[in-house]
Design a protein around this nucleic acid. Structure first.
Lengths: 324, 324
DNA sequence: CTGAAAGCGCTTACAG
DNA sequence: CTGAAAGCGCTTACAG
């Protein structure tokens, strides 16, 4: 009833056995007389005993808790993948401990530090780069996976950004667009942002065209293009919003493509053409990789997986208006 | 470099002191000779020593980890409040451990069990009811707060649903609507759903009108109303989507009001009139309450706080069309 | 089949 | 100012 939770010795004394025996009963790790077993189980029940995972982990020198570093739960993309990761961890018999970085300039270091003090069994980076040398040193020796972001220093599961961007760009050139822009976003991890831009630039170049870089929705460069590929859905949606407010018709005057396929992209009123990331697969595969590292089923070289992505064509893209 | 993290005794032997002294240096809990202090700090640095929070918590019999039970991270409302709660906890020197319930029918019990085994210092329910008798028994003696949902058995910080609904309903009657419906949603906690419906019913009754209950967007009852107040923004947004697909003009043919004010409600293309919950305040106040319980600064009767809410009028509501 | 003992990595009186 | 000892709640050989 009060703060103090019952311990294994209380169970033992109620059952009239030693705590070793209680431990053995709980873990099924030794042959136990049926009558003893029943008495112990009964005491556990009467006391509402629940093993102290802290003590167990301290003794076993391993925990079943995963640290998850997430960029910004506010962004629906992170919220969605965060939910999926949590679920995948639970299915693998692991517990997820989240640490929301970037919000208010909290650095990855502080988050990793905290997770490490809790002696997490492994850490997952969610579309978030933890590549500073310091963080890497801190993490040395503990299993790590990067989900949704390509890393060269550990396991990762991430789509091929360049390929996805090429898909988007080819869709636009295929529609006949000749003046295409790329809208960057500070909300996207810098390397990812660059990879997406370069992927689009390559595809556009193959069509003999150039890619304009657009720094924000207020960038005058926006006026010179008939189509924009955006760093992510959030940027694309804010571009749609901006276009609406300025009487720019989408897709009549301007075609818009996003990246991610967050759930609201599919709403009729948004109807955003976008490059879809298989979030469920990213989460499941990433956590499974991490679990295998944690359980020692896997060792050696980093594994890099790249699930397939696809283009979802909706109402925000169309051929360019015939110029007057 | 390998899995084994350095311990306090390794630091001690490198510095040539006892582990008691190392502990005292770390916690600043005793007068230490400056030279000793420096040697210890130096060893800590060289070894990259980080105290084991598990051991500390086991010894201190208290942890700084908060368990957070969250309904469904998929829903933007939960994602947003989850992020805010995480941030508030961090500011209070606490760590948040999330547990995403409801997804795939995982019961609150399993989540609470896991959290309790980790010996969390307290648990927060996020817009999620943990009221089953079993769960309450399990939680006996540990600090608890319910955020975003009114509970009668513990601390809670939640808006007054009935009052918010009245605001919404009065807005609609004020615009001249006479046939008003309430759209229920399975995505909303049942008691909350009921409170919102009853709140709207009361306000509508004061205007001498009746409130129709609409079970889904396909419910024929929808055809008989000129305005709908929805259980939450998600339901409202799906209603907008449904209206768009069926040529029902919003707000021309139908006015729509939501509840929550999730961030996408403010997008130009959604422009949803809605009852705004002060999410930041809910999160901050709730976590602060919990922290004070955890730190023993507060005891006695449950505290129930109800932050103010407000109606945000946007483009989804207008006077009813004059009937032909 | 059962129990006594050691030890996981800390903190905290208590001596000196 | 510093250190030896006990103990938090478990698990795990090892004896019996």
């Amino acid at each position: 009833m009060t703060g103090r939770a019952p311990t294994i010795v209380e169970v033992a004394s109620l059952a009239g056995v030693s705590k070793s025996t209680v431990s053995n009963v709980i873990r099924g790790s030794a042959p136990i007389a049926e009558s003893t077993r029943r008495r112990v189980l009964d005491s556990i029940d009467r006391l509402g005993y629940r093993p102290n995972a802290l003590a167990r982990q301290l003794r076993e020198q391993r925990s079943r808790v995963l640290g998850v570093l997430i960029g910004d739960l506010d962004n629906p993309y992170y919220g969605e993948i965060g939910a999926l990761v949590e679920r995948a961890a639970f299915h693998s018999g692991l517990t997820a401990m989240f640490c929301n970085i970037e919000a208010e300039g909290m650095r990855a270091e502080a988050g990793v530090q905290m997770l490490l003090e809790q002696r997490v069994a492994g850490v997952a980076f969610l579309a978030f780069s933890g590549r500073s040398p310091r963080v890497r040193t801190m993490l040395a020796g503990i299993p790590t996976v990067s989900i949704g972001l390509r890393e060269d220093w550990g396991d990762c599961v991430a789509v091929d950004d360049a390929r996805g961007s090429a898909l988007a760009a080819e869709h636009l050139t295929g529609l006949g667009h000749r003046r295409i822009g790329y809208l960057t976003s500070a909300g996207v991890e810098p390397r990812t942002d660059r990879a997406r831009r370069e992927g689009a630039r390559g595809a556009v170049a193959r069509a003999g065209l150039e890619l304009a870089t657009i720094r924000s929705v207020d960038d005058p460069a926006l006026r010179d293009v008939t189509a924009v590929f955006c760093a992510n859905d959030l940027a694309a949606i804010s571009l749609l919003d901006h276009a609406d407010r300025h009487g720019i018709d989408v897709p009549g005057d301007l075609s818009v493509v996003g990246f991610d396929d967050v759930s609201i992209a599919g709403l009729g009123r948004i109807s955003l053409t976008t490059v879809a990331q298989p979030l469920g697969e990213l989460a499941r595969t990433g956590i499974e990789l991490l679990r295998r590292r944690v359980d020692g089923e896997l060792d050696g070289e980093p594994i890099r997986l790249a699930p397939e992505l696809s283009l979802v064509v909706r109402g925000s893209t169309a051929p360019p208006a015939v110029s007057a």
